[in-house]
Design a protein around this nucleic acid. Structure first.
Lengths: 332, 332
DNA sequence: GATTTTTTTGGCAGCGCTACCAATTTCGTG
DNA sequence: CACGAAATTGGTAGCGCTGCCAAAAAAATC
């Protein structure tokens, strides 16, 4: 028994084997158009016998209708994006779409290059994070004619479709909550905001509401690099060294907030008695800590699901605000 | 100014505009074959002017050499897989390869279906987790002729390429470490092992060394569902309710271990005085907790990098063991 | 039973590009 | 300046499939 290596079985061979025409095989396989039950069985038998695997590359080229969906995401380290991919991939798989991705490291220039590379695959849609793109990216996407989905933000003008929630509102609501709780001397610990513009929008919203509430931000510590638990710990340490009398700290996200929380645990700083901690994202881990983290839970998986849904149903241009949920927790 | 929507510029149009033949444009664009500097400039100018984006679908079909790499991974919730993707995607991008993925939810049957769907894109390689695949998956992959990379495990027979580390050895080494530290009454808290076979291998290795060391596993708590911090917390709670006199607990991974750690913090159980905790993965968060988590750090990103490297260099079949590192931490 | 209608089918021209080969131009040498 | 070698080019046949159209077969109608 010889092993036929790389024996690429083609549709034509299946047609021969089944004793029908190529287009008939194509119709049966896609369950599109009409054919008799008898020929369907004959075709399927031949497919089975030959181990035929349709070539989607050829199919896509011929039909000029792609079922690829391209994700251009800032990071895979920040759990936000795997969550979005998870939600989207479930929906896409059900609809026989295929997800393709690349990672920009929060670099708009890289985003442009990667978006260009993606467009070369003629995807049905390109899924991006947020609204901040280079002029070149926008121009290219517009010219491509494929659907564009901007995810995880709704504060801005959408190119086509947008799914997410308002980061500005999240920041404002966090501030309002802390003010209501009676905190007056608040600080902020965050990561590089110039790259993560959504974190920047939260911070801006937070400061705005604090100022309006008569308790403007007392101090802040911005760390270079990505958000991480360790950076959160370090950031809070530095912030408190400089401004020890803070009564609450807002973190750029839960990773950072957990770092801050651990710092307090390690130093024996009573939470929230002496210092309140507030995060963003609503990670599961924040619910399992000795004191549940006060934070805002964002619909990350749902964002991916809805984004994918809009694409597969070819929905008209629109902005879908999925909202978020404030979790009181026990750290504020 | 009319907006040409969906104005798919083709290579032929670029050739016309530049006043050269199609093959010349193709050669220039791929920087392959010879052409004069003058024609290159002319071609590039035309490309620029028309906003030409090569169609990789067509290119792939014509060359029958794909630059797609298909990832069929169990999960995106378990940070392990985003980490692997991250390492791989960096290398793939550099080499103008494109990553495609789908998620199996640890279901071998789904893996088979998704692998089949992937092969339809005629990828250069299929990247899978571990060695446990259905017969159908194996047959299909073998027949496809594309490269196969089994990642995150080296305990078994590789189909083609394998990159990772020994889960069995990780379990054994964890046990040896705890024995050396003097723990004698040990327990285990894990998630569904029938699905996550690599966690199963660690557990088996762990038990083996414990038995050899004369201190066989005292009790275990296996939770249904995926690993999570909350499940770790819950698992330890149940385990201790049943067997309060344990002196150390091995967790299926760091997520679970952190849950256990938080449980001890909440209950005031001294660590490691009364109970030692040992994890697996070496997540960053485990280093920022008040007491750094004792665990084994696995080269997840490197696994992705090396896997991608082997594919782009078309390396001969081989198994690459990247090893792992035991981190003593302060919880054991 | 003849004719119309409906359902199934096969043929074939591309989809946009690459690979191969032959034609053309340029260059180097004697 | 002639001539072979080397460097550039263009033409064109597919890659494997889908979409369109016309042909054939089956079913329905009178």
């Amino acid at each position: 028994m010889e092993l036929k290596h790389q024996a690429t079985v083609t549709l034509a061979e299946v047609a021969d084997a089944a004793g029908v025409g190529e287009s008939t095989v194509s119709r049966v396989l896609r369950n599109h158009g009409s054919f008799s039950g008898k020929t369907r069985d004959r075709v399927m038998a031949a497919v089975e016998r030959l181990g035929y695997v349709p070539n989607r590359i050829a199919g896509t080229l011929a039909s000029t209708a792609s079922r690829l969906v391209a994700f251009v995401i800032p990071s895979l380290s920040n759990i936000v994006f795997p969550d979005v991919l998870r939600g989207a991939s479930a929906v896409l798989e059900e609809n026989r779409y295929q997800a393709v991705f690349s990672v920009t490291d929060y670099d708009p220039t890289k985003e442009e290059a990667l978006a260009a590379a993606m467009l070369a695959w003629r995807p049905a849609a390109v899924m991006l994070a947020g609204y901040e793109h280079t002029e070149g990216t926008v121009k290219m996407l517009r010219a491509s004619g494929c659907r564009i989905v901007e995810m995880l933000d709704v504060d801005g003008d959408a190119l086509d479709l947008a799914v997410g929630f308002s980061n500005g509102a999240a920041g404002r609501e966090s501030a309002a909550f802390l003010l209501k709780r009676g905190y007056r001397r608040m600080g902020y610990v965050g990561h590089d905001l110039t790259r993560d513009t959504r974190a920047g929008k939260r911070f801006a919203g937070f400061c705005e509401t604090l100022a309006t509430g008569g308790a403007p931000l007392a101090d802040r510590e911005i760390l270079a690099g990505a958000s991480s638990v360790e950076n959160g710990r370090l950031g809070l340490e530095r912030l408190l060294a400089r401004t020890p009398d803070l009564d609450a700290v807002y973190f750029s996200n839960d990773d950072m907030a957990l770092g801050g929380y651990f710092h307090c645990l390690a130093r024996g700083i009573p939470i929230p008695g002496q210092l309140a901690i507030f995060g963003y994202n609503g990670l599961d881990i924040g619910r399992a800590t000795p004191q549940p983290l006060s934070t805002i839970r964002t619909p990350r998986v749902a964002t991916g699901q809805v984004a994918a849904q809009l694409v597969v149903t070819n929905a008209p241009p629109q902005v879908v605000d999925l909202g978020f949920e404030l979790i009181e927790g026990a750290t504020a």
